[in-house]
Design a binder for these strands. Structure first.
Lengths: 358, 358
DNA sequence: CTGAAAGCGCTTACAG
DNA sequence: CTGAAAGCGCTTACAG
């Protein structure tokens, strides 16, 4: 009778329950539960006895049981598209800190492989009954848009479609940011500025738009050229390579993000050119990577910490019934000038073209 | 009677339960449960009807309820020390992939702030009843060692104390790795090689030991010098700065990891010196950061993906009752030579010292 | 201040 | 093949 405990899988330790605590303290389960919650109507000595008993037998609450009866988990899911993007760590740190401050737990899952895996991860999050979702990346993970509202609210960091109920967003103004990059390059004297883009996501689209608009604004619309890239460094490499192979190669590259800009820097080096002497490079995001001294990338900075903090605050606030603020918030980007941009050096000092000369 | 639903916090959607599915399909709860698990003893038409009903009302299992009755969660906790360390993403990706392959969920928490917060995070993990823990970083998070065995097994990636029951580890041979770095520098002709260390963790200790042993082996024991640093880039910066200010400054720096090496590269630049002409720099970890072309850091490579995969395999295998392999596994590091190391240039060509001249 | 009871959503023997 | 019942560990009215 004592040794018939079946070994399921491995002999997992049976965790003590409030029942065990109650037995040891000589009180009822109810009282244990109350004492553990610091309810005021428990006699001080009783509380002490219960807490001591719990401590002695190594009692630890069962989150699943609590969640079941409370009908809520105080947990938000964070869907991260790319752990390798240096933005991620900064934003995630801020999200976690703010969530913790508001007494919410945070469940991180990583997507980005394929649509099926991403949906499966989302499904797990929903089975866990996360009360809200924060999506972090240049696009929404698959399935989030449909799940939102019906399953739980969400806020996306980076652009998100407007007009979806219960889906907020927090981003910096990507059109303005791209403009900042172009303005800077034009002020340095560049004209042949090529944009290495990020594909079909909303963020990529806005940065592309901002680039085109700014080029036009400077009377450089005819020179505006976009080459396909991605948000990862290989995409930046490919894009920059293609740009440098153009009949009339650029003197400056505006790359969709910092990580892709790393690839672009490599492509410039591979072409036997120097940064910034031969080619200037501007990234986007203002990540720690760009700030690393051996890189010193000029970039369009986003307030990464603020983005994370506000996203968590908005979502948790909503869950706690606080009056909702704006569903979509646009923060201002700032240009961070470092050492990858400089005035262009005329390519052919002898046969130099001049716009004025015609 | 219809409108008395209390609004708790915000009006969270009441998720449908098997009860709702049962009602719609006209069967019992038991049958719904069975059908959802693909149990064989359910009539095909019944199963179809149930699945259809579930689909229609948007039913989604409740993980908490399942965990409660199953008395297990099929979830492992991953304790990450530093999200900013470029090692983290690589290892984490591998851990998650392997865990998923074995049908385990993964719960990521981030520590590293202070001991109290770290213990609290661990406590959350344990309340969630994770069945095992993977710790990722240069040291064990606070509390893990004590919790292990009593609460659940764990495996640490990076060195871990031996002899703690239920605590496995997976690491590369740090003593050997440090030796690889020194061997490489000595082969290039360096003698004044300073080590920028990582403090008091086991990993830092092993790399320091390996450095000292290798210097001795090369007859350079008297020149062995260790300056204090950390696993983050500011630590590398501080350490390298101190090293370069030495009365007899080094021609080469062996830095405790790649991230700290970024700081070291910056310190060298700030001192008005060039890498690798004036000072060679070697990092450790073999991260993607080191491989970025604009960095091209020579480093001691760890098989990061393998580390993550094997850690998850070992832990999940143990949970599934597979016969245990070795508790502590040591993988071999490999030297990755890139562009931050070169032969030393004699500092004073005229008054050059020669060991042979005496 | 304390305890017995009901129930959160599910699974699992146990009968039919 | 199907259903009624018990129970996972907890919390929360409801009585005393």
């Amino acid at each position: 009778m004592a040794s018939t405990e079946p070994a399921r899988g491995t002999d997992r330790a049976a965790h003590p329950t409030i029942r065990d605590v109650a037995a040891r303290a000589g009180v009822s389960k109810s009282l244990v539960s109350l004492a553990l919650q610091n309810a005021p109507r428990v006699a001080p000595e009783t509380r002490e006895a219960i807490l001591a008993a719990a401590e002695e037998i190594g009692y630890r609450r069962n989150a699943a049981a609590r969640a079941l009866v409370a009908r809520r988990t105080r947990t938000i899911g964070v869907f991260v598209l790319d752990l390798h993007n240096p933005m991620t760590a900064d934003v995630l740190d801020a999200v976690q800190a703010e969530a913790r401050r508001r007494d919410y737990r945070t469940l991180v899952v990583v997507g980005g492989e394929d649509a099926v895996a991403e949906r499966a991860e989302l499904e797990k999050l929903l089975e866990f009954r996360v009360e809200g979702i924060i999506a972090l990346g240049h696009r929404l993970p698959h399935g989030v848009e449909e799940a939102v509202g019906e399953a739980c609210p969400a806020v996306s960091i980076g652009s998100a479609p407007r007009g979806v109920a219960h889906l907020g967003s927090l981003s910096t103004d990507d059109v303005m940011g791209a403009g900042l990059a172009v303005d800077h390059l034009v002020a340095l004297g560049h004209e042949r500025i090529v944009h290495v883009d990020g594909g079909s996501s909303l963020v990529a689209r806005d940065r592309r738009r901002g680039y085109r608009a700014a080029m036009k604004r400077h009377g450089l619309g005819a020179l505006a050229t976009v080459v396909p890239g991605s948000f990862a460094d290989e995409g930046g490499y490919r894009g920059a390579r293609a740009a440098l192979a153009l009949p009339s190669p650029p003197t400056a590259l505006f790359v969709v993000n910092d990580l892709a800009a790393m690839g672009a820097l490599a492509a410039v080096a591979d072409a036997g050119l120097a940064v910034p002497q031969d080619v200037s490079v501007v990234g986007y995001d203002g990540t720690g990577l760009a700030g690393l001294r051996p890189i010193a990338l000029t970039t369009v900075g986003q307030p990464l910490h603020e983005l994370g903090t506000r996203a968590a605050a908005q979502l948790c606030g909503q869950l706690d019934g606080e009056p909702p603020g704006a569903a979509h918030t646009l923060l201002r980007p700032t240009l961070v000038v470092r050492r990858t941009t400089a005035p262009p050096v005329p390519a052919r000092p002898v046969a130099r073209r001049s716009r004025a000369a015609g």
